[in-house]
Amino acid sequence: MSSSQQYQAESPKRVRLTRREKEILSLIGEGHPSKRVAEMLFVSKRTVDFHLDNIYHKLHVKNRLQALQLARRLGLLSASEVGDSGVGLEEP
C-alpha cells in the first residue's frame, strides 16, 4: 500500500489525538516553532517534541507539514485551527 493510499485509508474514528496533541498541532499550524510553543504552554521544548513524535506516529507521517495536512483532511483540526500560510512549519 502506498503512502497516499495509507493516508486515504485512515479515518477520524481510527486516529485519535489527545487534547494536548491537538493544542500543539494547532499552535504549530499558526506558524510557531516548537520552542515558542513550549514557552506558550509552560513546558519544555523536549515535551513539545515528544508530543509531535506521538502525533507523527499516530498519523504515520514524517514531519509537521504532513501532520497538519493530514489532520485537516481527517477532520482532526479545522482549517481555522491550522494556519494556511505554512510559515514556521520547518524548524530553524
Rank of each mutant, 00 (worst) to 15 (best):
M1W: 08
E90N: 10
G75N: 06
V15D: 03
R36P: 00
V48K: 03
A67D: 00
I24T: 03
F50P: 00
K58I: 04
V48I: 14
A79V: 09
M40T: 08
H57F: 07
H60D: 14
M1T: 10
P33M: 07
Y7R: 10
L17M: 09
L77N: 06
A9M: 09
S78K: 11
A9Y: 06
V15I: 15
G31T: 11
V37E: 02
L27E: 04
L77Y: 06
Q69N: 12
L74M: 07
T47E: 10
L52W: 02
I24E: 01
G31I: 09
P33T: 10
A79W: 03
V37C: 05
E21I: 05
M1C: 07
E90D: 12
G29R: 04
P12D: 03
K35L: 09
S4E: 15
V87G: 04
S26K: 10
M40N: 08
K13I: 01
E10D: 08
A67C: 06
R20K: 14
L25T: 01
L25Y: 02
G75H: 07
A9I: 03
G83D: 03
T18H: 08
S44N: 11
E39T: 12
L74G: 03
R19S: 14
L68A: 02
S11P: 00
S26I: 08
Q66E: 15
S3N: 13
V87H: 11
P92N: 13
R73I: 04
V43D: 02
K35D: 09
S4N: 14
H60F: 08
V61C: 08
G83N: 05
R73M: 07
Y7I: 01
E90C: 08
D49T: 12
G88W: 08
G75I: 05
F50D: 13
E10A: 09
R46W: 09
A9Q: 15
F50C: 05
H51L: 00
N63W: 03
S85D: 11
G83K: 05
A71K: 02
L70P: 01
R46Q: 14
A67M: 03
S44R: 12
S85H: 06
R72A: 02
H32A: 06
D53N: 14
E39A: 14
L41V: 00
E39Q: 15
A71F: 05
Q8T: 05
L74S: 01
R20A: 08
S4L: 13
L89Q: 10
R16N: 10
S3I: 11
V37Q: 00
R72G: 02
L74A: 07
S3C: 00
E91D: 12
H57M: 06
T47Q: 13
V15Q: 04
A9L: 11
A79N: 07
S11H: 09
G31L: 09
L27P: 03
R73K: 15
V82F: 02
E30Y: 12
T18A: 08
P33E: 12
H51A: 08
K35W: 09
I28L: 14
I24P: 01
K13Q: 14
G83W: 01
K62H: 14
H51Y: 13
P92S: 12
L65D: 11
A38W: 02
D49L: 13
K35G: 03
N54A: 11
I28D: 04
F42L: 11
E30Q: 15
F42K: 15
